[in-house]
Design a protein around this nucleic acid. Structure first.
Lengths: 211, 211
DNA sequence: GGCGTTGGCTAATACCCTTAGCTTTCTGGC
DNA sequence: GCCAGAAAGCTAAGGGTATTAGCCAACGCC
């Protein structure tokens, strides 16, 4: 009887694949074992159990989202960075709903023995904070924290409601999202002006505004 | 062997009790049966299964939240209504985290045979819409829809992140929430002025601002 | 080539939901 | 007051899930 040649990374890859065609809640050892062509208990040779696997999936997802945020805010500051963050998050959730759910579930996933999850989550906050700090968000460090929370909350709330089917009416959701971003930009203490449409930052002209 | 005297409403009551000391995900037929002092299959005499029970719990929770929103917006319009809605939602989530999770899970709960859940959800949106419409939110009906979505998204996002432990830093979350409300009020097209502190609306002076 | 490590397996336990079918209790009409 | 029939409980059984224990075969290295 030949071996399947699994290892921890491969198991997590399969778990991500499971999450990608389903919900995060649908991540099950049985599903992963099925894809691996292996009996369920065999997975315990690579992973400490379902909780461990969930944690690992969340870690990957958060890291991936951080990378996207970094890329999206590259060279942008202030209002423009807020817009970029908003669209990056919504885009990620649309593309990979299961992974986005994993990101959200991350804090509740318990032990986090090496604190890796906490570290990479803090990184996510830093990426946003840096973009805002560089844009003149008012002095005190606490202020930046509050502003980052406001941005995260607003964007996450919209994305989460959308993902869960919370918007029952037929009106255009892209327009609603654009509206949300406008409200954020208008209400936040950002000194850097919003980039004009003519002098569009990297990403090319006509960067999608409504998606 | 005496009867337990259950009925559909009583089973749902017990389910709500289960949800109230745990998470919505922890709602299990076994737990309900345990509280009822009854074997698990007996519940099927009153409820069509776990999915049905979940739906019923969600229905109750949404109705309860709607009632609170109605009460909170009573006599308030515009900016003040937005503040009231925000605090009502956050207060409900803090007081009954499991039920708030049920509200959020509602749209994903499937069939909703009589459309009761859809109806009461629409009611929730209407309560907010009415308060804003009466406050001069600009003309077209679509505009009201977008604004209501912005408010719902921002508030829900904050509450959801908070509930999930998504705010790792020690800074005061009440202050962050107040900031979020300020951003909403500042960014929305509300004509009605914010009620002055001196002429505080029903609820008494010094209504909690940071909770 | 042997031997230890490793990665698979089966078996067993303990949860969970759900269906089927039985029995007991309550209730309502005569 | 009695006697159906309906309603509400039960046990038994079957199919998911995760997890632990213990076995055995394959791989790799000396």
């Amino acid at each position: 009887m030949p071996r399947a040649g699994l290892n921890r990374a491969a198991v997590v890859d399969l778990a991500l694949a499971v999450v990608d065609d389903g919900e995060f809640e649908g991540l099950t050892l049985a599903a992963v074992a099925g894809r691996a062509g292996v009996a369920v208990p065999s997975l315990y040779k690579h992973v400490a159990g379902l909780a461990d696997l969930r944690r690992e999936v969340a870690l990957r997802a958060v890291a991936e989202l951080v990378a996207r945020l970094r890329e999206a805010t590259e060279g942008r500051r202030g209002a423009d960075a807020v817009t970029a963050v908003a669209h990056a998050v919504r885009g990620y959730a649309a593309e990979r709903p299961g992974r986005y759910a994993a990101v959200q579930a991350a804090p509740a996933l318990g032990d986090d023995p090496q604190g890796r999850l906490g570290a990479v989550s803090a990184e996510a906050v830093d990426v946003i904070a840096d973009a805002l700090r560089a844009a003149g968000v008012a002095g005190s460090g606490d202020d930046v924290v509050h502003v980052v929370r406001v941005v995260r909350a607003a964007v996450h709330g919209f994305v989460d409601l959308e993902r869960r089917g919370g918007f029952g009416l037929p009106q255009d959701r892209d327009a609603s999202f654009a509206r949300l971003v406008d409200v954020l930009v208008a209400g936040l203490p950002i000194t850097a002006p919003r980039a004009t449409r003519a002098a569009a930052p990297p990403g090319g002209p006509g960067r999608p505004r409504g998606r």
